[in-house]
């Protein structure tokens, strides 16, 4: 019982807190008007991400996570509400955002080498000379541990390494906000742990704002400073949980801490509720 009350309190402090906001999602909803009946995928989402925060979004499968992400990325426009990136309404893919997709194998250009893949988005970015581009590519590949693989083609690498290339590409782009769409759902468990630590360390080093969408409850608690739990579709925010684990996280010690287990159990219970169709009273 005590666990619950502390979590509820911390959650109240997380959303709507004062201070600058990097990414603001305001009353966002999306209804697909297909043939026949319209499908309401997302009903009403409101949350804010502060600069430099690492926020995870987790929800039951089919809860509209992908719709939310595509709206934030500007790949799709919401039916109601808006997404605001650093004070500017998103109405197309914004300049200060990079997306890492789940399907790493299909989001890298197979006819370009690893270096060329990382360099490509920089070519259309204003104010970056050739020398600086080279530098950014080298730094990004170094940061993900692929400094040696620049001349190889993506399909010559393992799945985990391919996703590292996609992460390097996003990092080299120097985004204000980094969106990650279930990036590790398709890699094996060991690679996954490595990549989770990579995301934490890059986030620490670069100070970038990260929005990480996942269906993996453990992953969301391990990675995030906050976990936003979504209801099932039509989606609303169920709870905004502050993850008050020490900043220095480790696959072994963090995951065996009592607090980790508490938070994990709490998020798990809320997801189970969401699966049974529980919704906040106001959202009906």
């Amino acid at each position: 019982m005590t666990v619950h009350s502390t979590i509820e309190k911390s959650a109240a402090g997380a959303s709507g807190g004062p201070g600058p906001v990097a990414l603001d999602v305001v009353g966002m909803g999306k209804t697909y008007a297909g043939s026949g009946a319209a499908v309401e995928a997302v009903r009403d989402l409101t949350f804010a991400v502060r600069p430099g925060e690492l926020v995870c979004i987790v929800g039951p499968s089919g809860c509209g996570k992908t719709t939310l992400l595509r709206c934030i990325a500007g790949l799709m426009s919401p039916t109601v509400g808006e997404v605001v990136l650093e004070g500017r309404r998103v109405d197309g893919p914004p300049e200060g955002m990079a997306v890492v997709f789940q399907e790493y194998g299909r989001s890298l250009f197979p006819w370009l080498t690893v270096s060329q893949n990382v360099e490509l988005p920089l070519k259309d970015k204003k104010g970056i000379g050739k020398a600086r581009r080279r530098e950014l590519v080298a730094e990004a590949l170094e940061a993900v541990g692929l400094a040696h693989a620049g001349e190889q083609y993506p399909w010559q690498l393992s799945g985990g390494m391919q996703q590292r290339v996609a992460i390097a590409r996003a990092v080299a782009y120097e985004p204000k906000v980094l969106l990650m769409d279930e990036p590790f759902a398709a890699v094996d468990a060991q690679t996954r742990a490595d990549l989770e630590d990579l995301v934490r360390s890059l986030w620490h080093r670069l100070g970038v704002t990260v929005l990480f969408v996942t269906h993996d409850i453990d992953e969301s608690v391990y990675l995030g400073e906050r976990v936003i739990i979504l209801s099932s579709s039509p989606t609303v925010v169920l709870e905004d949980v502050v993850i008050d684990l020490p900043d220095d996280r480790d696959q072994l010690t963090t995951r065996s801490e009592a607090r980790f287990a508490e938070l994990r159990t709490h998020v798990y219970e809320r997801i189970q509720e969401a699966k049974r169709g529980h919704r906040p009273a106001a959202a009906g």
Binding site: L75, E95, F101, S107, L120, D124
Partner: peptide, 18 residues
């Protein structure tokens, strides 16, 4: 053309001739 690759190009604002 793979839709994921199209979206990747779009999200990185790859434009016009490129």
């Amino acid at each position: 053309v793979d839709p994921v690759l199209r979206e990747t190009a779009r999200s990185y604002r790859l434009g016009g001739a490129r």
